[in-house]
């Protein structure tokens, strides 16, 4: 009985947290007092004051305003690309437990191959071929993390597929799709969600690395990781400009992971 009561509440919590970040991503920039490229002070790395609540960055721009824009791009791009990579990875990983062996071989080798290609090379090639559109960015990030998700989910699915209850279900003559959907997926949920959460974190970090290379959000806009990177010199002055974006990243990613953990804990 208890399980039934807490299940919706966990789902609600996921919904609420994502809802909060999504709303912030959508409407946050409306709250920004300054334009993201506007230099408002000759003092760089200014501390918190009543003039600029969150201080200034390395060029003397308003950090609060830039932070609001950064949240928008990080949340949207990382959510999309994580959904893409985990969707593809899990689909392939689980599906190949039920397909002929050669399909698994082809998919597996392809994934290993993609994983072994340095993401730097991928990113540079994508910029050269498709330019720097946000769509290209999301797809690149998605492709780069698909093999990881594939490996994890396949290892999990493989273990479950050998379990007795699957054998029993097979013996019962259940269809493959039914088994995957009703037996395998629900039972690998815990580790899978932990993996999804981690992949979201990786996406946030990858985004800032890609921006550093030239693929990514174009100036004067910025993502959270790049905000940390461009202000890293402020470290020696203990600047808000480097500390605060780091905290926001941590709160965003740790929060999402904790909620995913909580959901994973409730078994259906």
């Amino acid at each position: 009985m208890k399980v039934r009561v807490s299940l919706p509440s966990a789902t609600q919590r996921v919904g609420m947290l994502f809802g909060f970040w999504l709303v912030l991503a959508m409407f946050g920039p409306l709250l920004a007092p300054y334009a993201p490229g506007q230099i408002i002070d000759t003092q760089v790395f200014a501390p918190i004051s009543h003039q600029h609540w969150l201080g200034t960055d390395y060029l003397g721009r308003d950090l609060g305003s830039r932070l609001l824009y950064a949240v928008r791009y990080t949340v949207l791009i990382c959510t999309l690309s994580t959904a893409f990579s985990c969707g593809c990875g899990i689909l392939l990983g689980v599906a190949t437990t039920a397909t002929p062996a050669w399909v698994e071989q082809v998919a597996g080798r392809l994934m290993d191959g993609i994983l072994s290609i340095p993401s730097l090379l991928c990113a540079l090639l994508v910029i050269a071929a498709f330019g720097d559109s946000l769509m290209a960015l999301v797809l690149t990030m998605g492709v780069i993390y698909t093999p990881g998700a594939y490996r994890t989910s396949r290892a999990l699915a493989l273990r479950i597929a050998r379990m007795d209850y699957i054998t029993v279900a097979m013996a019962r003559g259940e269809g493959r799709l039914f088994i995957i959907w009703r037996e395998i997926l629900p039972n690998m949920r815990g580790p899978l969600l932990a993996d999804v959460g981690l992949r979201f974190i990786y996406a946030v970090l990858l985004l800032s690395n890609l921006s550093f290379l030239g693929l990514g959000v174009q100036p004067p806009l910025v993502d959270l990781g790049s905000l940390v990177r461009e202000n890293v010199l402020g470290l020696v002055y203990g600047a808000v400009a480097v500390v605060l974006p780091t905290i926001v990243i941590a709160v965003l990613t740790v929060g999402i992971n904790l909620v995913l953990d909580a959901t994973a804990g409730r078994r259906s």
């Binding site: 981690l198 946030v204 970090l205 940390v228 990177r229 780091t246 990243i249 941590a250 990613t253």
Partner: peptide, 14 residues
């Protein structure tokens, strides 16, 4: 949990 997640989420260069 919070510690490990925190370490992963902060950029390595930082």
């Amino acid at each position: 949990t919070v510690l490990t997640l925190g370490v992963v989420s902060v950029p390595a260069f930082l």
